[in-house]
Design a protein around this nucleic acid. Sequence first.
DNA 1: TTCTAAATTTAGAATTATTATAAATAAAAT
DNA 2: ATTTTATTTATAATAATTCTAAATTTAGAA
Lengths: 148, 148
Amino acid sequence: MVNSTPSPLQNLQQAGLRLTPQREAIYALLTETDSHPTAAEIYEILKPRFASLSLATVYNTLETLVNLGIINALGGAGDSQTHYDADTSPHVNLACLACNTIVDIPSTLVQEIHQEVSQNSGFKVLGARVLYYGLCPTCQAKETTPNR
Amino acid sequence: MVNSTPSPLQNLQQAGLRLTPQREAIYALLTETDSHPTAAEIYEILKPRFASLSLATVYNTLETLVNLGIINALGGAGDSQTHYDADTSPHVNLACLACNTIVDIPSTLVQEIHQEVSQNSGFKVLGARVLYYGLCPTCQAKETTPNR
DNA sequence: TTCTAAATTTAGAATTATTATAAATAAAAT
DNA sequence: ATTTTATTTATAATAATTCTAAATTTAGAA
């Protein structure tokens, strides 16, 4: 029998785009981590393995994957950088304003909101960012005075 | 009898900050509009009334108000600018990727998610951005091919 | 009222994430 | 093989935001 769960990367070829080593590595990195890295972080991680890698390629690839709908771009995690997430299912992102980490939280309510918005707004809903922010348990322990 | 509904701006003075004409005008503008303006838009609107107004002051004030929790900063509306919202109650923001307008949608589900996240995550939740994006009815009619 | 210290505004410079450009490379099609 | 198209790459350009330092305003003390 053939491969049972095809990679979303195959959407690339179906769209007439090429599955290059850079694109494969960037997407694989996103699926294997839960750290919601930025473009710069992805670049730093992959540079040892791809000596010629350019930061522009990372940005290009991320934009391509976002347009294909197989990854999501998350903004506003306390820093001023865009974070990327290979989990495109409806879920809550919870960001710590102190250490800028983002964790995922599954929630059935998010899916209900999705339906609610789609049905009542008249919009053609293409995606969502449900982002909560605050202080993670670790940073709560460290800082008595949260932020200012 | 005294003023019945105190302005959230009084939080400024309670925090030892000053209620300057610039701060008053910026906050008033935000409460009187439902257009979720950017810093640059606020600056352009208020410049005729405050000849000496600086864009830096707009940014400073918006940061101050966000830190006080009386306005929210919204990112990721399709453009690369931060939009500001004087409505800090839990609600859904729905952005059109084509014309970059943002509309508010009340939703009881958002408040439920808020509780769910607060209770299950261990985070100290300080705020949220529930942003859906897509195409508004007007832009759906205009564009047959959405974006790229 | 005047003085003093702190807060605020302001103009402009600096920063920086992201995008655009154009040449080089790689892959697919003919 | 050759041609065409897609992609990568280095670098320049863009633009939103932040920083800096001087000028101004304010609140309260003297």
